[in-house]
Write a protein that binds this DNA or RNA. Structure first.
Lengths: 226, 226
DNA sequence: ATATTGCTTATTGTATACAAAATACATAGA
DNA sequence: TCTATGTATTTTGTATACAATAAGCAATAT
């Protein structure tokens, strides 16, 4: 007999720790350059060093922490350069996502996307920044899922993750809200109609705007590579 | 005073194990579906379970092993679908790599790339499959390095890695050798001349050919998604 | 014959113990 | 005062010990 009570999902401690630390890094609670000391974290989270270490190994591969041999882990620095690198890749992968979504999205997903689009608009109208962020993630999640390419989805999510620390500032910029809604609509319509070019143009614009905002926040000597 | 003898680089056991296991998986020594049991591996490699576990955590995030809760790790299955997913992403990232390399490659790297191109031709003439594989990796490594985008480099390498198990069969296909050399030359010339379109066309063709070969090897019902 | 139960074993998940290296700091000497 | 050195402390790297779950198997009941 199957387990009828599947409410209580089992998660190894390492995964709990992994998620906890990741969230801490992304929200800025753990600051760039801050050392992640095992015993300290173990005490704080009430577990032993083992799950802490295993979680750090994963964060390492995700690029969220930097390892220094025999010195341990620290929260990865975000530089203008590293952010540009991320954005450079994100642009083509987001473009690919939209293209594939146009070709492969199911009717059901189209509906979901429409709902997500509306929810985003409502969130924007409400002015609740946290709700806007959530709705934005949900919208983009549906698109990458609709590509049917789980590896792509994972990679895009990982890249998007790198930008979360800045995104909040971006969302706070109220005068951009209209633009945001407009872009989402364009993307949605493009995908709905299977108009790949329209959807791609919209997502490109979307990322470009985020790039401007993020780079503005970071440091901003103007260094252009032709 | 700095350490003048930096020959002996320190590598934590977890990284040694990581590389060992990865190589084992990529060469096919560890077969898809095979379980990775910690004590067994620990004995075999002469270390304790701890570094084994940490290595597995990294392999997990790289997609080379699959975790089953409370049952441990096994070598990830390669399906036609998973390989198509990888190739789908690789195409755009390789294209991006070549584009960026065209714009940013240094004179020194141009020379290196020329040498690597020649070495590849020599390897092909020699007929030494292993040497061909190495020279191929070296050639492509220079290109991704020349992008100046380390995150992109890492992602491309990870994707390329997924195809190593099949690449050997591909290289064994002697009648393709001429084509391979030709493609490499085109890529090299395109980058040298800063002719982005030429270089991109060449790399696209390059990956397409690999795709054909790999998909041929795997299973081969023809399923096309328009 | 099939299903169920209980036991044994194998294996993972977690905690702890020990060793080695890096760091910080104080102290002695120039 | 500044430098160098030795020592104590912290922290990582690795190994082992213990606990809990899952898998295999035999014996029993239906």
């Amino acid at each position: 007999m199957e387990n009828m009570f599947q409410g209580e999902e089992y998660l190894p401690l390492r995964d709990v720790v992994f998620k906890t630390l990741r969230k801490g890094i992304l929200t800025g609670e753990l600051k760039p350059g801050e050392r992640l000391m095992e015993i300290h974290l173990a005490n704080k989270l009430g577990v032993s060093r083992t799950p802490i270490r295993e979680a750090i190994r994963k964060l390492e591969l995700e690029g969220l922490v930097t390892m220094i041999p025999r010195r341990g882990a620290e929260v990865a620095q975000i530089t203008r350069k590293s952010m540009q690198d991320v954005l450079e890749v994100r642009k083509v992968l987001d473009s690919l996502s939209v293209e594939l979504a146009c070709r492969r999205i199911s009717e059901e997903e189209k509906e979901q996307l429409g709902l997500a689009c509306e929810e985003f608009e409502q969130a924007v109208e409400s002015g609740d920044f946290s709700a806007i962020a959530r709705a934005d993630v949900a919208f983009h999640d549906i698109i990458v899922e609709a590509t049917g390419n789980m590896r792509l989805a994972q990679m895009v999510n990982n890249l998007a993750e790198q930008m979360y620390r800045y995104r909040f500032e971006y969302i706070k910029d109220v005068k951009m809200h209209g633009k945001l809604v407009q872009e989402h609509r364009q993307i949605y319509q493009g995908i709905l109609e299977g108009d790949m070019e329209k959807a791609k143009r919209a997502i490109d614009l979307h990322i470009d705007n985020q790039e401007k905002s993020i780079l503005e926040q970071i440091g901003m000597e103007k260094e252009k590579q032709a």
